[in-house]
Nucleic acid binder design. Structure first.
Lengths: 129, 129
DNA sequence: ATGCAACGACTACACTCGTAAACTGAATTG
DNA sequence: CAATTCAGTTTACGAGTGTAGTCGTTGCAT
């Protein structure tokens, strides 16, 4: 988790999120490079990616740095923070803010693999020293 | 988890979800009753609640049963299923489909209370008999 | 220089969402 | 029976989203 984050900023949409993932994986990138990373699997045109980048810049979730005629884009928010707020939103909305019920749900939905369970067990043991 | 669910249906928006929660808590209910349960805390007018109910009916997430001049509304999808698909969406989108990383995140974000941790421990123990 | 390719900026457009007001038909009340 | 009230239906409207196309500029290749 990181500090103030300073700019809660508007929410990032799902399409925009795909762009963020590309930038979290590697940055800075040019619009074309981002497009190369995401356009194919989402079936987007370069124009679409550019629009998404502009919107992210407008939302201050991405910053630009001039590089000659073009821009290099970098995320201004950290993935950890994003993931954190999104997770919290879900837990708040669906589980009354308590995380355990989410686990209960995942368990009951058999959405946990054996490795998941082992890993969680490890984590819990760690938490209790 | 319940069977086929038959109608994946369009997605339920956040405002619509608040209406669903009211109906999951108790149903069937009239539009006015639903409104009584949710309008206040969300600052909605009765008209807004009616709109949301219509949209939910259109999305087949809620069914109606005539009761004299008015309708009684009931959810057609179960909360468990909704919670399941929303949780899965999040886990897929943010954690590559694995649930353990979500836990790791919650732990690292200190988003788990002591009770949460105890409960999870219990759960895990249960899972391993 | 000159034209083309590459970039960002601006414009577009249908659809969803949040949030309601207006309309319409039926029931209740006086 | 007329007036009011109530319930669902229709219409509204701005903001956000998904998904681009077009415009204007500028650097590069010939």
């Amino acid at each position: 988790m990181t500090e103030p984050a300073d700019d809660p900023g508007e929410r990032i949409s799902e399409a925009e999120h795909a762009v963020m993932e590309a930038l979290w994986e590697q940055s800075p990138l040019t619009a074309t490079e981002v497009s190369d990373k995401v356009a194919e699997e989402r079936g987007w045109s370069l124009a679409t990616v550019k629009t998404l980048l502009s919107r992210l810049v407008a939302k201050k979730a991405v910053s630009t740095e001039p590089d000659g005629r073009r821009f290099l884009y970098s995320p201004t928010i950290e993935r950890t923070d994003y993931v954190g707020s999104e997770s919290r939103r879900l837990v708040d909305r669906l589980f009354g803010g308590r995380a355990a019920p989410l686990l209960v749900h995942l368990v009951e939905a058999e959405a946990l693999s054996d490795e998941d369970i082992d890993e969680i067990e490890r984590l819990i043991r760690e938490l209790k020293q």
